[in-house]
Simulated scan of single mutants.
Amino acid sequence: MLEIAGYEDGPLVDGSGFLDLPLFWPCHLGSGLVGEEAQEAALGPDWDDAQDLCSRMFDAEEWPVFTVGLRSGHAVHVVYRNREGDRGVDYLLMRPSWQEAVTLAVDDGHFRGPGLCWPELASAADQAAPTGVTDPDARLLLLFPMLGDAGVPESAAARLASALAALTLAEDPARLARLLLRNQGQWESANWTRRDGEWICDGSHSFRDPSNAFALTPAQTAAVSSAFAADPDR
Rank of each mutant, 00 (worst) to 15 (best):
M1V: 10
L2P: 15
E3P: 00
E3K: 13
I4F: 11
G6Y: 14
G10S: 12
V13G: 05
S16A: 15
L19I: 11
L21R: 15
P22D: 10
P22K: 13
L23G: 14
L23T: 12
W25R: 08
W25T: 09
W25Y: 07
P26S: 12
G30I: 03
V34S: 12
G35F: 02
E37L: 14
L43N: 05
L43K: 05
D49C: 08
A50S: 14
D52R: 12
L53E: 03
L53Y: 03
C54R: 12
R56L: 05
R56C: 01
M57L: 01
F58C: 01
F58R: 01
E61L: 02
W63S: 01
V65C: 02
F66M: 04
G69M: 08
L70A: 01
R71M: 07
R71L: 06
G73H: 00
V76N: 01
V76H: 04
R81M: 01
N82W: 00
D86F: 07
R87S: 15
G88A: 04
V89F: 04
L92P: 06
M94R: 10
R95A: 09
R95E: 09
P96G: 09
P96V: 05
E100S: 15
A101N: 06
A101P: 08
V102Y: 11
V102G: 04
T103V: 13
V106P: 00
D107C: 14
G109P: 02
G109Y: 08
F111D: 11
F111W: 13
R112G: 04
R112V: 12
G113W: 08
P114C: 07
G115Q: 07
G115N: 09
L116D: 03
L116H: 08
C117N: 15
P119L: 04
E120W: 08
A124E: 04
A125L: 04
D126L: 14
A128N: 09
P130I: 00
T131R: 15
G132R: 03
V133D: 00
T134L: 09
D137K: 01
A138D: 03
L140W: 03
L140D: 04
L140P: 06
F144E: 06
M146E: 10
G148Q: 09
V152Y: 14
P153Y: 04
E154G: 12
E154R: 11
E154Y: 05
A156G: 02
A157S: 13
A158S: 15
A158T: 14
A161W: 07
A163I: 00
A163C: 00
A165T: 03
L167C: 06
L167G: 07
A174D: 11
L176Y: 15
L176G: 08
L176C: 12
L179M: 10
Q184K: 13
W187V: 05
E188R: 13
S189W: 02
W199F: 13
D202R: 03
S204M: 06
S206Q: 11
F207I: 08
R208C: 02
D209G: 05
N212R: 11
L216E: 11
T217F: 03
P218E: 09
T221G: 12
T221F: 06
A222F: 00
A222D: 06
A223V: 05
S225L: 12
F228Q: 08
A230L: 09
D233C: 03
D233A: 13
